[in-house]
Design a binder for these strands. Structure first.
Lengths: 344, 344
DNA sequence: TCCTGTATTGAAAGCGTTTTCATATAGGGA
DNA sequence: TCCCTATATGAAAACGCTTTCAATACAGGA
């Protein structure tokens, strides 16, 4: 809403528009007395360059986008919130693309963004690979909580493998031996890695891995319900369950309780994410915390850096891994005396 | 990503850029054989005008924004999802502003948007009045699920008054007489109206209104917990509770159950919104449905219409009201025999 | 003293549209 | 036949900025 043009500012300062532009974009190019005077005037009048004119003349791309596949999932909502905040801080427009797990929508969004010469895109877990590959060809990209076999893509994710290990080891330390796992959809490597960590932890303690204890969910609440139903139908119940996210853990917890199964007395449950929402009750969910702010900030700045550096398309990109942290709540108990394992 | 400029298209068609521009924006101005030829070429080459150049030369405003105060709240997340979808359909960029209930952020977002000559803003319930008033001065606005005393603002909201009435009458019909109400923050008129409907329904049935049965929450889950604690501390428990949104209803429900209070045996609960998430369990929340798609579509098209018509600032604006619908689930029961009312 | 290089600034040429204004053509009325 | 009015198109001027290029000034080196 600036009511001035750069030319007017220039006139008021007795200089040329070029110089004002320089003060705004490359201050080091203009000598001090003038620079100060112009900066002062700009501030005083609240002048802001017309963004359309800027983007027209500088051929640079502009703006960022964030793809999430389900904005109703609190984990992604938190990411949206955080990234929005960062973008706003830098005065960068951000387009939120909630694809509803629909490849059609992914495509429409991407087409639109490329038409608008988007400066960069952040993809959260759950967006399909072809879309990401296509985006990568035309603009800068970064993946958050997701990685694919491609050295030329920047990625920031939690240390899912060790997170899974942490969860499993905690349960093992509490004397659990029969530990169920609720995973995410196939090919979601963050979930696969948590599973790998869980598996390696078991084996490190001489506990054989049983495939029947792995339930494949889809990260949504409903999956947790389905999972607990599955586990309770087994001849031998697990004594503990590790869920690849809090949402499913919470679904399992709630469903179990509604069936009069006590948590953690009958079954211990541990989640992954540490979504504040799930710790509102008397019982706090035990979980492995993902450092969402850290994930978001790294992804954001990594992307910004690539944009500003004008990184090469095929340049080898950074893969940043953020550590996780075990958060002990009230949903796991220590098994004592003769090991309880199986149906009561 | 269009690789062509309007001039190139013009050359390929043996005409001038002006004519191509006209075909794109005011087709009726160009005669048929030429128009067809140009349209054909545009389609064939997938030409799209450079949006920055367009917006630079046409002084028109562009793009929409949506303010919500808490994107983690599923009601608002659903609104975000729906409005995003509509905007995308029309190829209109949408900026999501999650203000986190923070006036500072509201201001930063609005400043930014006005600088960028935003075409219109949709405000969901929960954004502060001064911000809305300021926005209204500079751009087109519409309120969703919110209204204020100002004829010159467009509004779309649910029929909260009758929704509240529906809920209360349903409970009364089930023989409840002592009905608690969990409201939203002060001055949120959607909540106030639900309360008014509740109150009028009571009085219509000769049930006196008791202020002690009204608990003021903040629409968040935690409030539901606080509310049930409050009600259970009363010497006379309510036999039923009407919550101004599902989130608080769910909080109350969950907390009650964790205290071994049965729902609906001991206390009936009815919510407001009908968020799908809360119906995932064995027990389906009884609730008053808000027609979110309808709310969003009305808001969106009302805004678009105002923009396209170039509505006058002080013109009297439409106030659209969307009916609600009672959705019976499993959280209310009929009191029978000697009326149960009060502590057991 | 003259030359070269560097730092600072301004003039002007775009950037890709839209839009105004002018021109040309065709048709209609006198 | 001539003039006038619509209608259809093109030329060119914005839109407000960035950026290249040229100009100037000044310092240091030979």
């Amino acid at each position: 809403m600036s009511k001035y043009t750069i030319t007017e500012i220039a006139q008021l300062c007795g200089t040329s528009p070029a110089t004002v532009s320089r003060v705004l974009n490359n201050p080091e190019l203009v000598a001090d007395p003038l620079r100060e005077r112009i900066a002062q005037k700009v501030k005083e009048l609240g002048y802001k360059p017309n963004p359309f004119a800027s983007r027209l003349s500088s051929k640079s791309r502009w703006g960022l986008a964030l793809f999430v596949f389900d904005i109703l999932n609190p984990f992604f909502a938190l990411i949206v919130r955080r990234i929005s905040h960062l973008a706003m801080e830098q005065g960068i427009p951000l387009t939120i693309c909630d694809t509803e797990n629909n490849p059609e929508k992914e495509k429409i969004y991407l087409d639109y963004l490329l038409d608008n010469k988007i400066g960069g895109i952040i993809f959260a877990e759950g967006i399909s690979i072809p879309i990401i590959e296509r985006a990568k060809k035309h603009t800068k990209t970064v993946l958050i909580d997701r990685y694919i076999e491609d050295d030329s893509i920047s990625e920031v994710s939690s240390d899912n493998y060790n997170g899974g290990k942490q969860a499993a080891e905690y349960l093992i330390q509490l004397n659990h031996r029969r530990i169920g796992f609720i995973g995410g959809p196939k090919n979601w490597n963050s979930s696969d890695d948590r599973l790998a960590g869980y598996r390696d932890a078991l084996e490190a303690h001489g506990i054989p891995f049983s495939p029947e204890l792995v339930f494949q969910g889809d990260l949504r609440f409903e999956s947790g319900i389905a999972a607990i139903e599955y586990f309770l139908a087994l001849p031998d119940w697990p004594t503990a369950i590790f869920s690849a996210n809090d949402q499913m853990a919470f679904g399992a917890l709630t469903k179990a309780r509604s069936l009069n199964i006590s948590i953690p007395e009958d079954i211990s449950i541990i989640g992954f994410d540490n979504i504040p929402f799930y710790s509102l009750f008397n019982t706090k969910l035990t979980t492995v915390q993902q450092n969402i702010p850290e994930l978001c900030e790294n992804a954001f700045y990594l992307l910004m850096d690539n944009i500003q550096r004008g990184a090469e398309k095929e340049e080898k990109q950074k893969k940043i891994v953020i550590p996780t942290q075990l958060k002990i709540g009230d949903t796991c108990r220590k098994l004592i005396g003769p090991l309880h394992d199986g149906k009561r």
